[in-house]
C-alpha cells in the first residue's frame, strides 16, 4: 500500500469537511460534524503513516486527537444549546457579533 491511497482518502474527507462548513449557513450542528470529519481525516493520516512507516507514535498522537475532538464536541454542543436557548435558531447567519 502506498501513501497516495490514504492520503487521497484523508484529503477528500478533509475537503468535504471544509465544504460542509462553507456551504451550510443555517445549521451549526452540521458545521460541528464537519469539524469532526476534518479531525477524522487527520486521524486517518496519522494512522496511515504509522502503518506505512512502521512507527507507533502516529497512533499515539491520533489518540490525543481523539481526546481533543471529544472535548471540542462537548464544548461546541454546550455552546450550541445556549445559543439555541437565546435565539431559538441554529443559523449562523444571525451571528455576526464580531463584525468590525
Amino acid at each position: 500500500m502506498e501513501h497516495i491511497h490514504f492520503l487521497i482518502l484523508s484529503t477528500s474527507v478533509f475537503a468535504i469537511g471544509f465544504l460542509g462548513i462553507f456551504v451550510n449557513r443555517k445549521n451549526i450542528i452540521t458545521i460541528l460534524m464537519s469539524i469532526e470529519l476534518m479531525l477524522l481525516s487527520a486521524n486517518i493520516n496519522f494512522v496511515g503513516f504509522s502503518y506505512l512507516l512502521d512507527d507507533l507514535s502516529g497512533q499515539i498522537f491520533s489518540l490525543f486527537i481523539l481526546v481533543v475532538a471529544a472535548a471540542e464536541a462537548a464544548i461546541g454542543l454546550a455552546i450550541l444549546t445556549i445559543f439555541f436557548k437565546k435565539t431559538s435558531s441554529i443559523s449562523i447567519d444571525t451571528i455576526s457579533r464580531l463584525k468590525g
Binding site: 445549521n27 460541528l32 471529544a70 464536541a73 450550541l80 435558531s89
Partner: peptide
C-alpha cells in the same frame, strides 16, 4: 459517545428542515 451526543442535541432542539437547507 460523541455521535449519540449529537443525536441527542439534534433531537432536543427540534429544528425545521426547510430552514436548514436554505441557500445551500
Amino acid at each position: 459517545a460523541v455521535a449519540v451526543l449529537f443525536l441527542f442535541v439534534v433531537m432536543m432542539l427540534n429544528i425545521s428542515e426547510s430552514v436548514i437547507k436554505e441557500g445551500f
